[in-house]
């Protein structure tokens, strides 16, 4: 996983609540493999019409947002299916950070596994950011994980909380499996006592 570095990039507003993972990546593409590349399929049915032509009004199709690497979304972003493909599509498209008032829990964890930072901010702050981004398309936001803050175009910074372990993993681009395997002895000991206690399993 690539380490998460401080980011200053164009942010695209997506003011829809409950954007589910079926919208981020429709199920009919899911048989493809990870290395096949997923960025061109991101938000497929929102982004393209029936003939495959870009819908001009969809935010990522507008030229001002073509360099977007941050997405500012509404509540419950990434709800629904556990498909990690949703994160792959965002990642491969170039998105490195999604800001929203709340996230689907599984999507949130999937982001962490792929070097993509999900930032949870109060609904009011998000609404303010979305408004600013809509008024002046192409504005940049800053995201600093080390400092745990998002800086808006007006210079206001929004602090966010993140689990310290997840923060370390993202900053280091850590391989979680290798890290956990370092704790193998503890896991083994737990398993043995667990099996003693729950001997019917």
């Amino acid at each position: 996983m690539e380490p998460f570095k401080p980011l200053a990039a164009v942010a695209a507003p997506l003011p829809l609540p409950n954007v589910d993972t079926d919208q981020i990546i429709p199920a009919r593409f899911l048989w493809r493999k990870r290395p096949d590349g997923w960025g061109h399929l991101l938000f497929h049915d929102l982004r393209f019409d029936d003939k495959g032509a870009p819908k001009p009004l969809f935010v990522l199709n507008r030229p001002e947002y073509s360099a977007a690497r941050i997405l500012v979304a509404e509540r419950n972003f990434g709800c629904g299916s556990s498909r990690e493909h949703a994160v792959w599509a965002l990642h491969d498209y170039g998105i490195r950070c999604v800001v929203a008032p709340s996230f689907g829990d599984i999507f949130f964890n999937n982001c962490m596994q792929n070097g993509l930072l999900p930032v949870q901010l109060p609904a009011q702050s998000v609404a303010g950011l979305i408004e600013a981004l809509q008024q002046a398309p192409g504005l940049q936001l800053g995201v600093d994980l080390e400092q745990q803050c998002v800086s808006g175009p007006d210079g206001v910074t929004h602090a966010f909380a993140i689990d310290p372990f997840r923060k370390e993993c993202l900053l280091a681009g850590a391989d979680e499996v290798a890290f956990t395997l370092g704790l193998a002895a503890k896991i083994e000991a737990f398993e043995q006592s667990y099996e003693r206690e729950l001997s019917w399993l």
């Binding site: 556990s82 964890n109 999937n110 596994q113 979680e176 499996v177 956990t180 193998a184 896991i187």
Partner: peptide, 21 residues
């Protein structure tokens, strides 16, 4: 019982464990 993503499934199969808050 709860759902997890593909990377977390790999993590469980490799380590028998999962990081949770």
């Amino acid at each position: 019982a709860f759902g997890i993503g593909a990377s977390e499934v790999a993590h469980v199969l490799a380590t028998q464990a999962l990081w949770q808050s």
